[in-house]
Structure formats: C-alpha cells, structure tokens
Design a protein around this nucleic acid. Structure first.
Lengths: 343, 343
DNA sequence: TTGTAGGCGTTATCAT
DNA sequence: ATGATAACGCCTACAA
C-alpha cells in the first residue's frame, strides 16, 4: 500500500501513461506528447516509434491531465430547448457526427424552453471549460449573455439568423417561414386564417409574426384567430386547441400550426368529429416531422433542415476552434414548403 | 506574457482557484477542499467561511484538476440504441435529473442499434474514466463485455431483467410483455394473430418470443404471421408492413406491433384503405408513446415505465458509487396494458 | 479537526 | 529537432 519513492512508474490506474510510452519509444515524454499530437517539429522517424509504442501499450491520453495542463477543455457544449421534440434530435446527431471524430466530447444540455434553466446549465457547464458553445436561438437572459461574452468561448447560434451583427449563426429565417405559410394558405383562396402556436419560444413567435404580417398586408388579419399557449407542444394539445378554435370560430378555413405534432393532433381530432380536411379547413404544419407525410390526409408542412443545421453549425465551430477565418458567419439553410393533402 | 516566478497565485484562466478561496477564508487549501466537498471532519464554522469565500469569488471547481488528482472521473456514461425513438428520451431525461444534481456529467452515446458501434463508443468513452456505466440491455459483443468487466466500473443495465446472475438491472420482463399482449388479443376472441417487429434488437425479439409462446400454447401460432425486419422502426414502415401483411394474409384479425410508431402507421393506412379497426383487425402497440392515445381509433398499447427506469437506474448507480450495499440488484418496474379503442 | 508534502498525467516554456 | 523543468488545480496520505 505504501509505495516507496519508486520513480515515475507508479500508476494508480491500470492505464499506461505518456511516460511509459516515451520510455518504450526511447524518447522524452514531451517528444512523445508532441509526436502523438502531430506537432510538426518531430522527426518522422520518432513519430513512428512513438506511435508504435503507444499502440503496443494501448495508450490513450488522459483527458483530465490534458485539460489541466493545457487549460483547455476538450468538450463542446450544446444547449437545446427540448429533446422530446424530435426536432432537435436530428440536429444533435449531426453535431455528434461531426465533433466526435475530431476528439471532442459533446455535452448536451436540455433547458426545457426555460431561460433560467439555460442560464443554470451554462453556468454549470462553464466549469468544464468547454472549447465551444452551440446554442439555440438568441433569446436568453442578460446573465447568460454576459457569461457567454465574458467566457470568450467561441459560440455558434443555431436555428435562427442574426438580425443584428457579428454572431455566428446557422439556421433560417423564422419570419420568412411564417410568411411563406400565410402566402401558401392565401394562395389556396382561404380568408379566415388562424395561427396556433405552443411553447412560445422566440422562433414560434417569430413565425407567428411573419404569418400575421402577411395577413395584415392582405387585410385578413384577425387577432382572435391567433392562439398562443406556453404549454408544451404535443399531439394532444394540438387536438385540444383545434377543437377550441373551431368551436369559437366555426368559420376558420385555414390553420397554420407552429409545430407538426400540433397539426397532427388537429388532423386526428378533425377526423374524429367529422371536420373535412382540407375542404372545410386547411391544415399546415411546421418542421415536417417523420409521421406527417403518413397522416390522413397527408399533412402539408414546412420542412426544416435540422440535420444540415447541426452539421454546418458543428463545422463552423471546428473552423472557429482551428482559428481559421470564417467565410460566412451567417448561414441561411433555408426551408421547404411541402404541399401534400391537408391544404 | 512572461510571468516571473510569482507564487501560487498566477492563473492562466480567469477563474479563481481553491487556493484563493482558502486564502480568503483564512484556511489551508485542503481544508477549503474538504469544506466544499462536505467532508464531515471540518468545523461548521470553517465550512461556512469557506462557502462564503467560494461564493464571493464565484468559485467553481476545476473538474480536470479534480479528476486528475483523485484518479476519478466525474462522468457517467449512458449508452442507448436510439434517440429518434422517443422511448429513450424519457429515460435519459430522468437519468440527467438524478445524476446532474449530484455533480455527475452525463455522457450520452447513441449506438444506433449496432453492437459494433456500441463497442466503439465504449472504448472511446473509457478514456474519460467514467465513474459509472448505464447500458441498455444485455446484448453486446464479447469485446464490449470484456471491456466492461476489465474496467471494473460499476454498471447498471436498463430495460431488461437479468435472467442469469449478478448484474444490476432495472427494467421489466420483455418476455412477459409479449405474453400479455397475446393474452389480451386472445381474450378478444382473435384467432389469427400476427407480430410485426422492426429493429430486431434483443428486446423486440424477446417480446416476439413471449407472444409466440403464448400462441403456441393456444395452438394458434403461425410462423407466416411473424414479420420481422431489421429496418428502423417508424410510422411509415409500420404502414408499409401492415399493408403487406394484410395483402398476404387477409384473414389476420389481430396484430401486435413491437413499437407504437409502427402501430400508428398501421392505423393510418388502415384508415386510408378502409380497413376497420378493431372490427376487422385489432391493433396493439407497445410503449404507449404520447400520440397513441390520440390516434383514430385510440391505440391500445403496453405502457412501459421509461422514465421510472431511468430514475431508478440512476439511483442504483448512485448507491453503487457511494459504495453502499445494493438491496435489490434486479428491479422489475413492470408494464401496464392500456386497453383503448383499437383492440 | 487541521495542515504538510507530494503527486496525478500532461503540456508550456525555455534551453540546448 | 529534442529535452529539462515547472506548472496546471486539486486531492490522497500521512502527520500534528
């Protein structure tokens, strides 16, 4: 138990250390370190020796030691507002796909659409000295904002586009999406258009605004036909709100839903109580979730490039971390209107 | 840039260190460390002082340093087969909820139902010296198994129950669930019962086996009515397989689906082509996903305690990590048959 | 109950 | 191009 002062080779964990690799390769630890990290100043011959030694010993760096010594974490923090919304899963997957192979640990935080919770997560995760931050949208507390700024950690914002200046962001214009939705419905000859949104995050609001604006321009805006609730988006909620709206305003002839699950719920309830879709009411969803195209009738929706956003955001982060110049800090990934049977 | 040999207080990062906290509190660093970790041997008076100092300085431990010094990671690795399956989201959430407050970093790995990918993840994550492992099921490669064993890291298995010996697991009997499904359908007077499963993971197979066994006992088993595919479970796939099955065997009068999304797809297609549910065919799902109760007709399903499993598994891990004795290494969380309109 | 000494595995700095 | 030395911030062991 009492290891006398034997030299550098006493190991607590069973894992080989850089020292052992170095010794096996017949070089100094620092050279081994450099060789393994691909620092250019090491002779190719030595590099090979070291790599072989590392392989033989089955050496893996100790992330803790590395982080401590270099004052650099190896993690990238990703903060999303929800996981139950299939939405962000695709994005997360793509991020993983890009970052993991590069040796980054991806720390996922779910802030449940709560600004305060996001602030907490941020504070907690900062302790890990993450190398990068991948955040969702721009709506956060002042403290959060300050923390991010003060931390000086590279940051990429996902889902929305920067209206103001200077931030790296990958997403699409939520406002435009709302406008597109309205235009589509209008083009179908609808006159009484409603918007139903849940969660009330910035993006849902923005889409609502785009929708409203277009209706106003067309002289068809009616504030009574705007249903917003902070409750979490779900199939059940969609059905509920749909029924309420139809009861209160039987003349509604088109509804744009802030998320597909809501729209799916509406479709289901419509079927249950015999409301004809799209004859009586046109239903348009958002995000084009997997089930939507299989609904009865098939749900028209605005398809969003969630996976592409994740990938690009991660790639952007990579160039940021490499210290390379960023060609386009603002990347509009667009969206696509999928017209199916429900409109 | 060239910080002369000033003492312990030179900091590269802008963050306060334990030393500074200690100095502010007028104690030695180690006392501060103990105080902050809640080691009992510190005078309450000092604890308060230290905590105040830490608060004043906005001190947060450096996880890297802590990990290095204690040769103990602070992370728990969770490996799940899928994220797009809403299934595991609930479980992950629960795990987070339990582990994060205790200061554990939760590392999520998605192995996409691939044993090899799981092995890779395991190997990679081992570098972080995780304190614990939360794994899904028992079906993995020999190498994975050996790695787990050799690592000597506490491990809790989720979703299934240990048939053999000695493993800590939290889940329910997948076999029983399959039996329950068959019994229910049988009790409805159905004679031509089919099972449709995708993904073909161990648990899907197990449920199928339970289902089959019960049918065999009833003398009603027909291998032609067992549809298994390695493709990923989805609403679209469910509809597809349903249609195929009905075309090949128009006399089928009940179908048990390995996952709710498949069943939902079937319901949708049935509606589309006028197949009466449950009159002509009874449809039973599995997992009771959020949308199921809103389907038309409302989907009968077997509800699984995903959230409870996550919570309990995490709690079990906590007692394991605390070195406390485990009262019940095998925890059966059960499942519940929800009879609605589709059966 | 508190403190002293030393090391955890790696990398930065400065020489050579 | 390579190496010696000294941190990085914290914790384990032991001593007081």
């Amino acid at each position: 138990m009492t290891p006398s002062k034997n030299d550098k080779n006493t190991r607590t964990t069973g894992r080989p250390t850089l020292n052992e690799v170095a010794r096996l390769a017949g070089v100094s630890p620092i050279t081994a370190s450099r060789a393994l990290r691909g620092v250019s100043t090491v002779a190719t011959e030595l590099v090979e020796k070291v790599q072989k030694a590392a392989l033989d010993l089955n050496y893996v760096v100790n992330p803790a030691a590395r982080a401590l010594a270099s004052a650099q974490g190896h993690s990238v923090v990703v903060l999303v507002p929800s996981l139950s919304n299939l939405l962000f899963i695709d994005t997360l997957e793509a991020i993983h796909q890009v970052l993991r192979p590069k040796g980054f640990e991806v720390l996922i935080g779910n802030f449940h659409y709560s600004r305060d919770e996001e602030e907490n997560l941020l504070r907690n995760y900062m302790a890990y000295q993450p190398r990068g931050l991948l955040l969702t949208g721009f709506d956060r507390t002042e403290s959060s904002r300050r923390m991010i700024e003060a931390s000086n950690i590279p940051c990429v914002y996902m889902m929305e586009l920067d209206t103001a200046a200077g931030l790296n962001c990958v997403g699409f214009s939520q406002l435009n999406a709302g406008e597109t939705a309205a235009e589509h419905l209008l083009s179908r000859g609808r006159k009484r258009l409603a918007y139903i949104g849940a969660q009330l995050d910035q993006r849902t609001l923005l889409r609502g605004e785009g929708f409203r604006r277009t209706l106003q321009n067309a002289g068809l805006y009616d504030p009574d036909l705007e249903v917003l609730t902070p409750r979490a988006s779900s199939v059940g909620l969609g059905g509920e709100l749909f029924l309420q709206l139809m009861a209160a305003h039987p003349d509604v002839d088109a509804i744009f839903f802030g998320n597909d699950d809501l729209a799916q719920g509406a479709l289901l309830e419509a079927m249950r109580c015999g409301i004809k879709i799209p004859e009586q009411v046109a239903i348009l969803g958002f995000n084009d979730l997997p089930a939507s195209e299989h609904m009865v009738p098939r749900l028209s929706s605005i398809s969003t490039p969630r996976e592409a956003i994740g990938r690009r955001a991660a790639e952007l982060m990579l160039t940021l971390l490499a210290g390379n110049p960023v060609a386009k800090p603002v990347q509009d990934m667009g969206f696509e209107l999928k017209v199916r049977e429900s409109t």
